[in-house]
Amino acid sequence: MRYFLFVPLILFVVLAQVATASYFPLMGVAANPLLVVLMCWAIVRGPKETMVLIPLAGIFKDLISSDPVGTSVLALLPIVPLAAMRERWPTESDFLPTLAVVAMASLCYHLLYMMVLTAVGDGPPWLQSPTRVLLPAALFNALLTPIFYLPVRWATSLSEMVRPRMRVLG
């Protein structure tokens, strides 16, 4: 399966997140579906493809939000090393470790994001952030994981089933 065919889908996730995420808060925070999709993608399909998707999606998100361009790219970077670490320690089931890695990626995302905002003079209150944003967002994003993990897993399995047949036919 050519992963770049999914670039429009990823960009749609960004658009939907920017447009509607604040409509569906949980514990006072909005979810970050882009982060969850990319993390699931990196775990199921390996980090190589996300190395292309992260800059594309990150720049697009920053272009249509109030953040300086590059902020989301920087904040999404930990997805790749986290997925690489996950690959080094395989477990029987992917699902539960994925939840943990998504929560970890969410924490890293917000920490880097807060650092950038502070550096550009728009810093949030650091003392309040862990309890009001970092932890609730990590939990919310982890809860959201099954919604994206299962379709990514299913799409990947389907493409693996289709590919050998196509080779035989070709």
Partner: peptide, 11 residues
């Protein structure tokens, strides 16, 4: 036309 999706800003 848009609302910033960040959890750390209200824009």
């Amino acid at each position: 036309i848009a609302r910033d999706p960040s959890n750390l800003k209200e824009r």
